[in-house]
Structures are given as C-alpha cells and as structure tokens.
Nucleic acid binder design. Structure first.
Length: 195
DNA sequence: GTTCTAGAAC
DNA sequence: GTTCTAGAAC
C-alpha cells in the first residue's frame, strides 16, 4: 500500500533511466566526443568532424571515421579511400577559413583510441598548448602528413609508423621554431631579456 | 589525452 | 624564492 502510494506520486520523468553513463576509460574519449553536439561541426554517413577539446591552435579539428578504426596500424590497403575522403572533408572545411594555413596529419603514437586526422592551423596560438610534448607532436616527424600516410598505405598495404620509443624521442626533442631557425635555449632567453 | 602535485633543479 | 619534471590518478 505504502509502496503503491509512493510510486503513484512519483513524476513520470523518474521512470526514465537517468543513471549516469558508465564511466569509460579516458582513452575512449573520442568516441564520446563524436556524439557531443557541442563539439561536432560536420557529419555525414562516413565521418564526423569535431572541434578538438583542447585545441593546440586557433583552429584545431579532428576528422573521425564512423567506421570503427582503432588506429593507423589497423588500416587495410582498401581503406586508403577512406583516408582520402577524410582529408578531402577536412580541406572542404578549410574553405571556410580562407586566410588560415592548415596542416593535415596523424600523430605517430596517439593516446586516444579511434583513428583521427588532425586539421590544425599553423598559428599554434592557444592556451591549451602548454608543453614541449604538445609542440613536438605537431612539429616533428611525430606528425605524419596525411598524404604520406595515404601513400604508404597504398604502396605497402599498411601504415608504417614508428616504435613508441622513437615517438618518445621525438616528443622530447628541444623546442625548435617551425618557421625559422630559432631554438629557445636558456641562453637565448637570457639574451632576449637583455635586449 | 589532462590535471595535480611532490621533489628536483634552478 | 620560482620553475621544471615525472609519476599517479582520472
């Protein structure tokens, strides 16, 4: 009786399952972001383009295939067309930013699961760009040009990247300007302060 | 991937 | 004192 009374008073919304979604491991975050309307900027039957949650430049997007493709290693030769399509969609989006220079590529050893093509403007002006590793992930060979990845897949039937150790080595390299010879050292910083 | 923080380095 | 770094947690 008491139970029946309580349940009859309960508003309809309570009958919906409002339990929070199961916690997923952080490395699966892209699969969540793909479905976040606040992040999605383009979408069709094959791909989703989202804003990077922690943009490392003024414009930083990720093109993600809807097909489950965990990483570069899992790509088969037949899927080079998908990679071409991802780059094409990225370049189509870039048309909206005629004055902005972009690069299109993949991280050699990404931390997040699900293949994602970075489309990043070359200003690298962002409060989220905080560490040497951030910089080097876009400005050393750690950043694999989309065209090179596609060529490799088509010529060799697989994407050849590098070992995690080789990746770490690149991320740990000294900072170096992507436009000129400048390399910020303690000495250079001291001299700059004196000028 | 990010954030936080303790200890090292400056 | 401040800054940098590596490790753990998320």
């Amino acid at each position: 009786m008491a139970t029946a009374a309580a349940s009859s008073k309960r508003p309809a919304v309570d009958s919906l399952d409002v339990r929070p979604a199961k916690k997923t491991h952080w490395s699966q975050g892209l699969l969540t972001s793909m479905n976040d309307p606040n992040l999605v900027v383009e979408s069709d039957d094959r791909i989703v383009i989202i804003k990077d949650k922690y943009p490392k430049a003024r414009y930083h997007f990720l093109v993600i295939p809807k097909l489950n493709v965990p990483n570069l290693k899992s790509l088969k030769r037949e899927q080079s067309e998908l990679l071409r399509y991802m780059e094409t969609r990225a370049r189509m989006l870039a048309v909206n930013y005629p004055q902005v220079e972009f690069r299109y590529g993949y991280h050699a050893i990404p931390s997040m699961s699900q293949l994602h093509l970075h489309m990043i403007s070359q200003d690298f002006d962002s409060p989220c760009l905080k560490t040497k590793r951030h910089w080097n992930s876009f400005n050393t060979r750690y950043f694999l040009e989309s065209a090179d990845v596609i060529r490799c897949l088509e010529e060799r039937g697989m994407v050849v990247t590098m070992t995690p150790i080789a990746g770490e080595k690149l991320l740990d390299q000294p900072l170096k300007c992507h436009k000129c010879v400048y390399s910020p050292t303690k000495y250079a910083q001291t001299q700059a302060a004196l000028v």
